[in-house]
Design a protein around this nucleic acid. Structure first.
Lengths: 151, 151
DNA sequence: TATTGTTATACTCTATAACTATA
DNA sequence: TATAGTTATAGAGTATAACAATA
């Protein structure tokens, strides 16, 4: 990848900086809802079927179970998420995104699409598409690595 | 860019998730030093000549001036950064990275290079290179947007 | 005995506001 | 009057540890 391993020239460093910055931007955009990017991540994971229970969320997002309780509480209070006990295993809470939750996801999806458009404008369609593909593959890897029984 | 604007399918969302995750990884790697990714960002910006004063850091990283005081204090205490008054304008503190600071940057650069190697292994050399280029361009834009007199 | 979730507690990071000093 | 930096304070976000319920 980079022939120069000077920190600021690495993809890892840039990914960290750009991603953190974007998270702040999303946080700002969410401020009026009282939610954070992690609330949004929770909704997204559940909506996508990548997480079924609170435990799944904790593992996928590498976050403590006690934080997931709080995130789920707040999402539930706002009517964006529902918890119900799993009849097959009453320890578990099955999570589902409500219609209102899907609306919020759609709204934030629009915002994200607008950011994507900016990225594409800056990079051009080809490089933008390549960035897309690379990020999609890395995301798949991350999810795969953390799905069931990973250390 | 993405034809689907569903939040999890956007480049913006993936960039946020992957970047945040990487920031946590760096934070973990820095833990024994008592430093955070923002300390590292500060050193990197100063070392690269992108920031000369605390004010520059605050603007570049979109962080409050009072936080920069704390970051600089802690970096200085560890002998990684030096502050000296600008003779031309005694309100300003000129920041410079010490040899020890450069060593830390080099060490973290090695870690970042290792992450880059993983990315490249996962994406292949071509897509990895394209990711590199895209991130570099976006980083340049970010720095440019925040250099002197931006809103 | 292990898993899932919860509660109580404390700590870290960060911003806001009021202040000092220089210009 | 505006800029650069500092201090004091408070708040948000998160983890750790101890716990309860279920398997």
């Amino acid at each position: 990848m980079a022939t120069d391993s000077s920190l600021p020239e690495t993809a890892a460093f840039r990914l960290m900086v750009l991603g953190t910055d974007l998270a702040n931007e999303f946080a700002e955009h969410l401020r009026e809802t009282g939610l954070t990017p992690k609330h949004l991540g929770t909704l997204a994971m559940v909506s996508q079927g990548l997480a079924r229970t609170q435990d799944d969320i904790a593992r996928l997002m590498r976050v403590s179970p006690s934080l997931v309780v709080r995130l789920a509480d707040q999402l539930e209070q706002r009517g964006l998420l529902e918890r119900r006990r799993d009849p097959a295993n009453r320890r578990k809470h099955i999570l589902t995104v409500t219609g209102k939750g899907e609306s919020l996801l759609a709204e934030m999806g629009s915002h994200a699409a607008a950011v994507d458009a900016e990225l594409s404008a800056r990079l051009g369609q080809r490089l933008g598409g390549q960035l897309d593909e690379a990020l999609a593959r890395l995301m798949d890897k991350l999810v795969e690595d953390r799905s069931r029984k990973s250390p």
